[in-house]
Amino acid sequence: MSVITTRLATPDDIPELQQLIGISVRGLSTAYNTPQQIESAIKYIFGVDTQLVIDGTYYVAEMEGVTVGCGGWSKRNTLYGGDQHKEVEDPLLNPETDPARIRAFFVHPDYARRGIGTHIIKVCEAAARHAGFKSLQLGATLPGVPLYVAMGYQALENIQQPMPDGHVLPIIKMYKNL
C-alpha cells in the first residue's frame, strides 16, 4: 500500500486543487446529488478557500508524488464553501468557546476509500487541538457523511443550501469534541 503524505498547500497549488475539486465532486457525488446540483455546487459553493491557504491550515495529500486529495481546518467562522461562496474575510474564532471548522475535503475518485480523507482529518484534528480548540464543526455533503460519522462526528442540523440558479444542495452540519 502506498504511503499518504500531507503538506501545507501553497498559492501555487490552487489551480491544481480547483481541478481536483471538480473531478472529486463529479466522481463521488453522483449517487447522492443530481447532475444539476453537482454542477451548481461546483460553480457556487465548492472550491479552494484561499484564506485557509493563507492561514496555513489547508493541506495537500499525495501518494507517490501524485496529488490525491485536499482538506483543511479553520480558525475562522465560515463553515463551508470556497472563495466564490463568501464575500469578506472571516472573523477569527475563540478556541476557548468556539469549535474550529473542518473544511473543504476532496479526494480524487481514483483514490477513494484508501484512507486519504481519514489521514487528512487526523492531521487537521491534531492541528486544531494544538491551536487550543476543544471541538470541531463541519458542513458535510452527503458523500462525506459516512466518513465523518466513522471519525466520531455527530449530525446537528440538516441544511438546505440554496444556490443562485435555484438548485439546493443538502448539507449536514456535524460536530465532534476533541
Rank of each mutant, 00 (worst) to 15 (best):
D55R: 08
Y58P: 00
L79G: 14
A61I: 07
G71D: 03
D90H: 10
R103Y: 05
T97Q: 04
G69E: 05
G65P: 08
P95T: 02
D90I: 00
A104I: 01
I102D: 00
L79F: 10
V88M: 13
T57S: 14
G82C: 03
N94S: 12
N77E: 10
M63K: 15
R101E: 08
R103D: 03
D55S: 08
Y58D: 00
K75W: 03
P95M: 03
C70L: 04
H85M: 10
N94E: 10
V107G: 02
E64N: 11
N77W: 09
P95E: 05
R76N: 10
V60C: 12
Y59W: 11
Q84G: 01
D98Q: 01
N94K: 05
T67S: 13
D55N: 12
G71M: 00
V88N: 14
V66F: 06
G71K: 02
T97L: 05
E87T: 09
A104W: 00
E87N: 10
P91S: 12
N94L: 04
E89K: 15
D55Q: 11
Q84K: 11
V66I: 13
R103T: 12
H108D: 12
T97R: 02
R103H: 10
G69H: 09
Y58G: 00
D83V: 06
E62V: 05
G82A: 06
R76I: 09
G69C: 07
L92G: 13
F106H: 12
R76A: 12
D55G: 08
I102Q: 03
L92M: 13
S74Q: 06
P91Q: 11
Y58H: 11
V88Q: 15
N94F: 07
K86N: 04
H108V: 07
R76P: 04
R101G: 12
R76L: 06
Y59G: 05
D98I: 00
D55I: 03
H108K: 00
F106N: 04
G69W: 03
V60H: 11
G81V: 09
G69D: 07
Y80S: 13
A100R: 02
